[in-house]
Each structure stands twice: as structure tokens, then as C-alpha cells.
């Protein structure tokens, strides 16, 4: 590009003796003028770089799908009478990753995801605790952690009654004890 230009200019304006290099001045030929800047080659390069950048952006976004083929996050868990006071109910554990626990005042839905690194603890009836097989975290029936590396209590899910009196557990909404969220009316179903 600049070579072409140099030739052109040297025809019309023969350069005087070149300035000493030490002055650091570029000679006219290699200066970017408005014309050379908008030359087709520059446009081509800019378009190429933009397209490449665009493609890398596409590539990045490609890894974040919009639609997930995951199990539904909200489920009906039957009627409150289906659950015994004082028991940890395991029937939704493998399908929905939820324990339903009923105590004297009501029902709450505990997440089966260990707050250490995400394994599924086991409910040990004899010891009245949840025990994680991965690194040994233990949680009380309430979900409060008391041993092992888990840094915080199990999470609770939103639990409400539908119009027909069935329990609805909504896993998209989580309540964390350490954030004082267990007091939320939808974190605990009064029966």
C-alpha cells in the first residue's frame, strides 16, 4: 500500500533531502493520510478483524445454551397429611433432590445438595442426622451443619399450598439460614 503511494507522490512532489533519521520524522510516503487510511486494503483488514472478533464472541456465547434439558424445578408433593410429624421423608430424594420434613409446627423442603461440594448426604435415622459420604459433613434434621467441612446449613426450597390443597415445592427459590431467610413465610409451610 505505502509502496504504491510512495511512487505516486514521488512523481508529483520529489522529496527534498530526507530529514535526518534522528529527528524521528517519518517521511510523507509512510504517513497515514485520509486516502490511505480508507484504502480498500485497510477496510479489508478492519472487516477481517471485526469478523474474527465476532466469530470468537459467537464461540463464547455458543457455550451458554438458552434451553436446558433438565428435570423440572417445581413439583407437587401431595397433601400435608401424607407426611408424618417428626420424620424425614425420602420419597422425592432421588427424583427431585428434596427432603420433606414435618415437625410440630409445619413442613419444610430441604435441598439434598451438600453445602460443601455438592454430594448427596444420607439421612441416618438412628443418629438423627444427614451424613455426607464424600467428606463427612453432618447436618441436623433442621439442615443446620454441625460437623465436617460444610461451611453453612442445607438450603430450603420454597414450599406453598396450591388451590387444591397440595404441597408445591419450587426449587428455583432458595432460602439460606445464614442469610436469615428461613423466616420467610414461603420457606416454611405452617400446618
Amino acid at each position: 500500500m505505502s509502496e504504491l503511494n510512495e511512487e505516486k507522490q514521488s512523481v508529483t512532489v520529489p522529496p527534498a533531502s530526507p530529514p535526518p533519521a534522528a529527528l524521528g520524522k517519518t517521511d510523507d510516503g509512510s504517513q497515514v493520510t485520509r486516502r490511505t487510511f480508507f484504502s480498500w486494503l485497510s477496510i479489508g483488514w478492519i472487516a477481517f478483524v471485526a469478523a474474527t472478533g465476532g466469530f470468537f464472541t459467537m464461540m463464547l456465547r455458543f457455550f451458554f445454551p438458552n434451553v436446558l434439558f433438565e428435570p423440572v424445578q417445581t413439583f407437587r408433593a401431595g397433601f400435608p397429611e401424607d407426611y408424618q410429624v417428626g420424620e424425614v421423608d425420602l420419597r422425592w430424594k432421588s427424583k427431585y433432590g428434596t427432603w420433606i420434613v414435618r415437625n410440630g409446627e409445619g413442613i419444610y423442603a430441604l435441598s439434598t445438595t451438600c453445602t460443601h461440594l455438592g454430594c448427596t448426604p444420607n439421612w441416618l435415622t438412628a443418629e438423627q442426622k444427614f451424613k455426607c459420604p464424600c467428606h463427612g459433613s453432618g447436618f441436623r434434621k433442621t439442615g443446620i451443619n454441625f460437623e465436617g467441612p460444610a461451611p453453612r446449613p442445607l438450603e430450603r426450597y420454597r414450599i406453598v399450598l396450591s388451590d387444591d390443597g397440595q404441597i408445591i415445592v419450587d426449587k428455583t427459590k432458595k432460602y439460606q439460614q445464614e442469610k436469615g431467610q428461613w423466616g420467610d413465610p414461603e420457606a416454611f409451610l405452617k400446618v
Binding site: 457455550f63 451458554f64 445454551p65 436446558l68 434439558f69 433438565e70
Partner: peptide, 13 residues
């Protein structure tokens, strides 16, 4: 993690 797993949980993706 979402980009790594292709979802919010470990699964087919």
C-alpha cells in the same frame, strides 16, 4: 461452571 457443565447441574449435556 454453567459453561463447563452445559447446564446448572451435572447431566447429559
Amino acid at each position: 461452571r454453567f459453561a463447563l457443565l452445559g447446564g446448572r447441574f451435572l447431566g447429559e449435556a
